[in-house]
C-alpha cells in the first residue's frame, strides 16, 4: 500500500503521466458544511509532474494548516486519461490519516481514516465529508 508521508522528499510522490487531464480535480475545495468540525478546506495543486494535497482542519479562530502531502491520482477505468479520484497520507506525529477521495456529480467526497498515535485515549475513527470547488483562484500564502 502506498503511504506517501508529508514532509518527506518529493521523490516519494508518484509520477503522473503528463497527458492526464487533471482539470476536474485541481483547485480549492471547500466543505459543503459551513459548520464542519473536520476538514474545512482541501487544496489540490500541481508542481511539474507531481500533485500535492493540502488540508486545512477546522479550527478557531483560524484553520489548522496540515501542510502539503504528495497525492496519487486514479481514473475511473484503466483506459481513461481523466482522473476522478486521488489518495494521500499524513503522518503528523500524534496521528496519521489516510485520505481517499472521489468525484461524484461535481462533489468531491473525502473519506478519512484516522489513527491516533499518542496516549490520549482517542479511538481511531472514520470520517466522510463533502466538498465543492471554489471559483476563487488558489491562493494560500
Amino acid at each position: 500500500m502506498s503511504n506517501p508521508r508529508s514532509g518527506e522528499s518529493t521523490s516519494t510522490a508518484v509520477t503522473i503521466e503528463r497527458t492526464l487531464d487533471l482539470s476536474a480535480l485541481l483547485g480549492d475545495w471547500r466543505n459543503t458544511n459551513d459548520a464542519a468540525t473536520g476538514i474545512a478546506r482541501l487544496l489540490l495543486t500541481q508542481a511539474g509532474d507531481q500533485i500535492f494535497a493540502r488540508i486545512f482542519g477546522a479550527g478557531h479562530p483560524d484553520p489548522f494548516d496540515w501542510g502539503e502531502a504528495p497525492a496519487e491520482v486514479f481514473a475511473e477505468i484503466p483506459e481513461s486519461m481523466q482522473p476522478t479520484s486521488f489518495t494521500f497520507y499524513y503522518d503528523l506525529g500524534f496521528m496519521s490519516v489516510w485520505l481517499q477521495t472521489y468525484l461524484a456529480k461535481g462533489v468531491l467526497v473525502v473519506v478519512s481514516f484516522t489513527r491516533f498515535q499518542d496516549s490520549s485515549g482517542r479511538s481511531n475513527y472514520f470520517g466522510k465529508e463533502f466538498f465543492f470547488r471554489s471559483q476563487n483562484p488558489v491562493a494560500v500564502k
Binding site: G59, D62, G121
Partner: peptide, 29 residues
C-alpha cells in the same frame, strides 16, 4: 493560519472535532 507544529507530539488536535476535552469515558484504542 495557526501554526500546526506538525512533527511535535505536544500538538493535540488539528481539527476541532479531535479536541481532547471531547473524549468520552468509553473511548477504545
Amino acid at each position: 493560519l495557526q501554526s500546526s507544529g506538525l512533527r511535535s507530539f505536544d500538538v493535540k488536535h488539528l481539527r476541532a472535532q479531535d479536541r481532547l476535552e471531547r473524549i468520552g469515558a468509553d473511548a477504545r484504542l
